[in-house]
Design a binder for these strands. Sequence first.
DNA 1: CCTTGTGTTCTCCG
DNA 2: CCGGAGAACACAAG
Length: 287
Amino acid sequence: MPELPEVETIRQDLRRKILHKKITDVQILHTKVVGGKPALVSKHLIGKNFSEIGRVGKLLIGELSNDHAYLLIHLKMTGQLVYRIGDKIFAGGHSLNKMQTELPDKHTQVIITFADDSKLFFNDQRRFGYVRIVRPDELESIKAAYGLEPLTPAWTFEAFQKQVQGRKTLLKAFLLNQSLIAGIGNIYADEIAYDAKISPTRRLNKLTHQELKKIFVSSEKILTKAITFRGTTFNNYVDSDGNTGNFTSHLKVYERAGEHCKRCLRATIKKIRVAGRGTYFCPTCQT
DNA sequence: CCTTGTGTTCTCCG
DNA sequence: CCGGAGAACACAAG
């Protein structure tokens, strides 16, 4: 499940790898992921290059050179973006890294080829993700629907408080709500609540000022640390090199039901359903 | 049946 | 009767 740290890892890596490289070919193997508009995507990409790669929440935004259009990529649950410079690096009898597979494979949806013959593969096992072209005005309305972006200059406790103000929803639902806070998904919502020592079922209007501050600080801390470790691989997230994330072993509660709490060392981590999602927490530490 | 991210729909309340 | 909030539901595919 690529969330903010995973998408940000991909964004930073891709900036270094494909920025300003001329796109020479686009292959769309399954039209569903491009909303049934393969010709539109190809038309806007071929002959252009990415002049910048941005992100809002979990959404990647490719800015196209000499074109008033953007390429949006959403990975949803099982999407991957893997960049390959070709088979040359594997020449001389070296075998492929075990985490890597030959590409394209049966999950490859789109292949973008650059002038140096390198390729960007958009793979998606479940095909929930998408690739689409939008105009600047469409991009603006899409961006406007997202809430406060963590780790940006706008990310201040005052701005955070404003998002909470007047709300009575559950902490978990708040953290997952992209129109309030951008980029947090099921894994990091649980890790943040655990770090802040607050139950995911608490209502926002019942939180003290101190507790709210803890949630703000923990959000920044967990997301920053997860980016440093290049994200979490639970199901099938890989970075643009095809490597898994290193934050997985640092998870304290997610997918750890039945294990002893790493902090209080007494209780076991429980799994419940909150806001329709599987939710992990320590019933002793988190109140 | 389950999984999560997101978009839609419904209900409630003031 | 309305607007907004929140929750419930729907959908994707394996």
